Amino acid sequence: MSAAIEASGLGKRYGRTWALRDCSLTIPAGHVVGLVGPNGAGKTTLLSLAVGLATPTAGQVRVAGGRTAGSAAALDAVAFVAQEAALYRNLSVADMLRVGRSLNRRWDTGRAQSRLAELGVPLTKKVGALSGGQRSQVALTLALAKCPELLILDEPLAALDPVARHDFMSALLAAVSEDGVSVVFSSHVVAELERVCDYVVVVHGGRIQVSGEVEELVAGHHVLTGPTEHADAVSRRFPVVRDRRAFAQAHLLVRAPDPAAAPPGWQHHSIGLEELLLAYMREPSASVLPGPKPAPDKQIAC
């Protein structure tokens, strides 16, 4: 299967400060991918590099089946929706469609008009007079009208209320189902990822913490509960993501494909996606990740 995004040794530095480093990642095509991490983790930097809005300091990134990010071929195949959608508030929706048609070599005006009609977004209305949810739908429509192979969205839900978030994601999933487009979107709304994503990537401190298909990641992590005095021995046996110890009992979230491998006297419990993602977001663990630890440079918000 071709890759939606493939990064090798990818890094971005501003002066002496790294926003992203040592990023090697392959996201297979055909997935709805959630990119998650705390503020300043490197999510926007990774997406900007994939779209071609930024140039790598180190390594390389290819998109949509091996196209170099930012190349003419990649620009034709990739659509991008930023958190602050690039919409002209004084233009009508119809005028925005004409702008999109003039800026892209591939464009489906009929599909865009039909989609907005189904959503009840009037073409004659100025963008600035639309609700936040309607503006987000216009931005998504402009992206889909490019007929992309890969759709990248940076925090598309951040400014939307719960109803608008639900409507946006429903419309996005419908488009994915119809066109088979690969989707990568960053989000802080961890609770909603399980409903819409089948693949996740966690970024923390400018580095990839974990990535993979949702079902495989959830099945491959377990909470082991047992006597604190034996916790060190367990942590040497399994990669530990989260370590919680009280005087008598320890709770270790470990990456272990076989829960039956728990030591005698220890119980194992399954874990949900939200708890798993939050653990990686809170506690990046060198025991889980290969490679050297990051140097003590400052990380920047990105």
Rank of each mutant, 00 (worst) to 15 (best):
L87H: 08
A69L: 01
L119C: 06
G120Q: 07
P122L: 04
V127D: 10
P56Y: 08
R105S: 15
R115A: 01
R111A: 03
A129E: 15
R106N: 10
T141I: 05
S92C: 04
S114G: 13
N90R: 15
T141R: 08
K126Y: 00
D95S: 14
D95I: 04
L53T: 15
T109L: 04
M96F: 07
L46H: 12
T68Q: 10
R135C: 10
A50Q: 08
G100P: 01
V138P: 10
L119M: 11
V63W: 05
L47N: 13
T55M: 01
T68I: 06
G42S: 06
A74K: 11
N90P: 01
R115W: 03
T124F: 00
R89E: 14
A143P: 11
W107S: 01
S71I: 01
S136W: 03
Y88A: 14
E84Q: 15
Q113S: 02
V61C: 01
V93S: 10
T68R: 09
P122V: 05
G128E: 06
V63G: 12
A64M: 02
R106Q: 14
L49R: 09
G133V: 14
A79T: 10
A85M: 08
T109P: 00
S136G: 11
D76H: 12
D95R: 15
R111D: 00
S102P: 05
S71K: 07
A73M: 02
R101H: 06
T57C: 08
R101G: 03
V127H: 12
L47G: 10
V81E: 13
G110M: 05
G100C: 02
L75W: 03
F80I: 06
T57R: 13
D76F: 00
G128I: 06
G110T: 04
V51W: 04
A139E: 13
S131V: 12
K126R: 15
R89A: 13
R101K: 14
N39T: 09
A54T: 09
L91D: 02
L144C: 05
R106D: 08
V93A: 08
M96W: 02
G110E: 09
V127I: 12
G70T: 04
G132N: 10
K146H: 09
V138C: 03
L144M: 11
A117N: 13
V61T: 03
A117T: 11
G66E: 02
S114E: 07
G128Q: 07
R111P: 00
C147N: 15
W107K: 03
L49T: 09
A112I: 06
R115T: 03
Q134S: 07
G52H: 09
V121N: 10
A50S: 11
G42F: 00
A69R: 07
G65A: 08
G66N: 08
L142V: 10
G65T: 14
G132L: 09
L75K: 15
A79F: 07
A117I: 04
L47K: 13
L116P: 08
T45N: 11
R111G: 04
L75S: 15
L123V: 06
R98K: 15
N90W: 00
D95P: 03
R106M: 04
R62M: 05
A54C: 10
K125R: 15
L123A: 13
L116Y: 06
V51L: 00
A77R: 15
L49P: 09
Y88R: 13
A73S: 12
G110Y: 06
V61W: 00
A139W: 11
T45R: 08
M96Q: 14
T44G: 01
T44S: 14
